[in-house]
């Protein structure tokens, strides 16, 4: 911890950003992410959208240190590849897409894995687990076996684990922490989709950084501050929600006619634009 603070204090001016420059990620001989540059700010929720296979998850995996890359990814002012797993674990939490457990842990055991501070005693750990479970809408689930939960419940338990890992959005020395979420609401019902997105947004509001790979454009429109649109491993557009959410960007990206509506009551909404014969058939 002291290492981290010493490290971050020297570069305090830069640490509000996550900076990606000229990033290339290859898998075998295939180029998955090509010439990606972007910056994300602490305090904002950045959504990455794009059709399946556009490289969103791979980009996130490079940022989380899971995939080797060419170019530069600076997190907290340091190159991600040069940070030890321990240091990375203290500045950012990662919610993976699917999580299969090899052994039947209880919910509290799963979440406990996210509590990295080994000075915490059993009682405060149990308290933190309970808090995290309430946040994700699963109060009292401590003793349940993870394998017995539904997919959506498992996803929320995993999120609770990640939240415990980076509990305070801003560390004691003022360094922001980061949440990297790969399709955080993909197996949730609509109520919990909004609950979890609110939670992520709140994390950003309190000073943390959030990057989420998203499929649902309307949820993205409701919660994202910034949006990165990807297609075929490249950046289509990166900017504020208002700038990016336009028919001229989304329709060619998803290869489907999309109408973007804006009104005061509902904000920005995206709906398929069916031609007359289309909707009747």
């Amino acid at each position: 911890m002291s290492n981290l603070s010493a490290l971050t204090q020297t570069v305090a001016a830069h640490v509000q950003f996550l900076d990606v420059r000229d990033l290339k990620v290859t898998l075998g001989n295939t180029l998955i992410v090509n010439d990606m540059s972007l910056s994300a700010h602490a305090g904002e929720l950045l959504a990455i959208i794009g059709p399946s296979g556009s490289g969103k998850t791979t980009l996130l995996k490079a940022i989380t240190g899971e995939r080797p890359y060419l170019g530069s990814i600076q997190l907290g002012g340091c190159e991600v590849a040069s940070l030890s797993p321990e240091t990375q674990a203290m500045i950012r939490g990662v919610l993976p897409q699917a999580s299969h457990l090899s052994f039947p842990l209880t919910v509290s055991e799963v979440i406990g894995l996210g509590i990295l501070d080994r000075r915490q005693d059993r009682l405060s750990r149990a308290h933190r687990v309970a808090e995290a479970l309430s946040l994700v809408g699963l109060p009292g689930f401590e003793a349940r076996t993870y394998q017995d939960l539904s997919g959506g419940e498992q996803q929320r338990v995993q999120l609770a684990r990640v939240l415990c890992q980076v509990w305070d959005p801003v560390a004691e020395d003022g360094t922001p922490r980061w949440l990297f979420l790969d399709e955080p609401v993909s197996s949730l019902d609509i109520k919990h989709q909004y609950q979890i997105m609110k939670l992520a947004k709140d994390y950003a509001r309190r000073g943390g950084g959030v990057i989420a790979v998203m499929h649902d454009l309307n949820l993205t429109a409701a919660f994202a501050d910034k949006v990165l649109v990807m297609k075929n491993g490249s950046k289509v557009q990166h900017g504020s929600l208002e700038d990016v959410f336009s028919e001229t960007t989304l329709t060619p990206t998803f290869e489907m006619p999309l109408a973007v509506t804006r009104d005061d009551e509902n904000g920005i909404r995206v709906v398929p634009r069916f031609s007359a014969d289309h909707s009747k058939s």
Binding site: P85, E86, A89, L101, L105
Partner: peptide, 18 residues
């Protein structure tokens, strides 16, 4: 080993040198 229960990637994410 406990962290590996989550999978190798997730274990690395919580700071394990897998």
């Amino acid at each position: 080993l406990n962290a590996l229960t989550l999978g190798e990637a997730a274990a690395a994410h919580i700071g394990i040198r897998v």
